[in-house]
């Protein structure tokens, strides 16, 4: 054990500083990258939610049940409050 440290003498502060800084920057950068990726996913979720609202014509307060349903699919009635 001591043999290892004999090969690796203590670095003076001005040499060691950048390495220590780099290690902590890596840590912060990883978190930031993660947050950025999650933010992108969040935006996608929002976009899909908006799309869903458009598809269901939700911005109109009352949805006329007859003609707004996309054709060719069995229409499923969703209670408004579950989506809003």
């Amino acid at each position: 054990m001591t043999g290892v440290f004999a090969v690796a003498p203590a670095l003076p502060l001005h040499t060691a500083g950048p390495y220590v800084a780099a290690a902590y920057i890596v840590f912060v950068a990883l978190i930031l990258i993660y947050v950025a990726i999650m933010a992108r996913k969040q935006r996608r979720t929002e976009r899909e939610l908006a799309q869903l609202r458009r598809d269901l014509h939700l911005p109109d307060q009352v949805r006329p049940a007859d003609e707004r349903a996309p054709e060719g699919r069995p229409q499923t009635e969703l209670p408004q409050e579950r989506i809003a």
Binding site: M38, E48, L52, D55, P70, R73, T76, L78, R82
Partner: peptide
């Protein structure tokens, strides 16, 4: 982060389920 990721995943799964229920 584990909790956060789970929450995000569950929200997306729920969104997908709603889409399926509403649009086929």
């Amino acid at each position: 982060l584990w909790n956060y990721e789970i929450a995000a995943k569950r929200a997306r799964m729920q969104l997908r389920r709603l889409r399926r229920a509403a649009l086929g």
